[in-house]
Computed example of a mutant assay.
Amino acid sequence: MTSVTFANVWKQFGTHTAIEDLNLEIRDGEFMVFVGPSGCGKTTTLRMLAGLETPTYGKILLGRDDVTLTSPGRRNISMVFQSYALYPHMTVRQNLAFGPQIRHENKSEIAASIDKVAKLVGLETLLNRHPSELSGGQRQRVALARSMIRRPRIFLLDEPLSNLDASLRTHMRTEIAELQRQLGVTAVYVTHDQVEAMTMGHRIAVFDHGRILQVATPAELYRAPANKVVGRFIGSPRMNILPATVNVEGDRVNVRCFGTTFSMQGRTFTRDRLSDKIELGIRPDEIQWVKDAPSRCTEKITGVVTSLETTGSDTFVLVNVEGTEVNSKFPSFAPVRRGDAVELVFDPADLHFFDAETGESLKATSAIHN
């Protein structure tokens, strides 16, 4: 197993800065996910790790080895791309054997490795088929097996499931995560899909405009986003972000939003960073229909239904509250219609507060972990 360290890494293409002062440690055996919108720098970072791009400044370490200027072939890294890149004229067995043969490995060892890896990824009955005879999921397994057979120090996966349909993506992400667990090899996975990131990663690095905004476990990202961008990106449906005002009275902070005022304990906030105007964040599943909400939800607001979206298990209802659109969670096929007046409730402890100018979280560390 191998750890990965990015130390003060920058990548510039002419006058464009793709990666800005990247510092990141990926632990031995960790499944790290890079997530963010298109153009945020996550794939550029992966390509620098693979040796396909050279950092403009900074260092990249594999374990204790400085590989910043090491060629890709000498890093012992396997990479799985969005494109399966299989040889169409070769069988599955021949595709898997091609790399070891180029490296002049022993024939009997190659055969044993193919049988072992094929069994691990469920390809043992497909070894004599050609790629054209396989489904998308099966071809993805071949691409994974081809990477595994060289026993790499690190697996790199660049949006490997984006060509698959939704149900197959769900199945394959479970398989990939389980394979990584069995092998115990450090893996770095790039995706723009936050659901993939949340379900697969031990930790997630959220990228935006060439910078890492936060590195944390899925639970930490969801419960304690470091800023508004992370809060909006992680979670589906997206977090509601609403304007609010605050004033401090002794040990209490009075917050006005949704056309109502409620109070919270001052220790919830980093008080020296509070200003009159803030932005309040609340996830749709934390602001609920009064008839279906838990008893801890004590603050009430009213509004008018403007649209509904039923997912089967839940119905997400857009409600106009004092001129502000709020996405809220209702039970499946709740008996409400567009134009109905509804009452919503929430627990102030579920709220997130962000600086209106910087977007940074105002929640105190002690409040986040309580």
Rank of each mutant, 00 (worst) to 15 (best):
T2N: 03
F6T: 03
W10D: 10
A18C: 09
D21V: 05
R27N: 14
G29H: 04
F34T: 00
V35A: 14
S38K: 13
G39K: 11
T43W: 10
R47M: 12
L52G: 06
T54N: 09
P55C: 08
Y57D: 15
I60D: 09
R64T: 15
D65R: 10
T70N: 04
G73P: 07
N76W: 09
P88Q: 06
P88Y: 15
H89M: 00
N95A: 08
A112T: 11
E124S: 11
E124Y: 07
L126C: 03
R129P: 03
L134S: 06
S135W: 02
G136Q: 06
A143N: 03
R150K: 14
R150S: 12
L157R: 06
L164S: 14
T170W: 03
H171A: 15
H171R: 07
T174A: 12
T174E: 15
I176R: 00
I176K: 01
L179Q: 05
V185L: 08
Y189A: 00
T191A: 01
H192P: 11
A197Y: 13
A197F: 09
H202P: 04
F207G: 00
G210A: 11
A216V: 12
A219R: 15
L221G: 04
V230S: 04
V230P: 00
G231K: 04
S236R: 01
P237Y: 09
R238C: 08
M239A: 00
N240C: 10
P243D: 14
P243I: 11
A244D: 13
N247F: 13
C257S: 15
G259D: 04
E279S: 07
P284H: 07
K291E: 14
R296Y: 06
R296D: 14
I301Y: 02
V305I: 12
T306H: 10
L308K: 13
T311E: 13
G312F: 01
D314K: 02
F316A: 05
V321M: 05
V321W: 01
G339Q: 09
A349V: 11
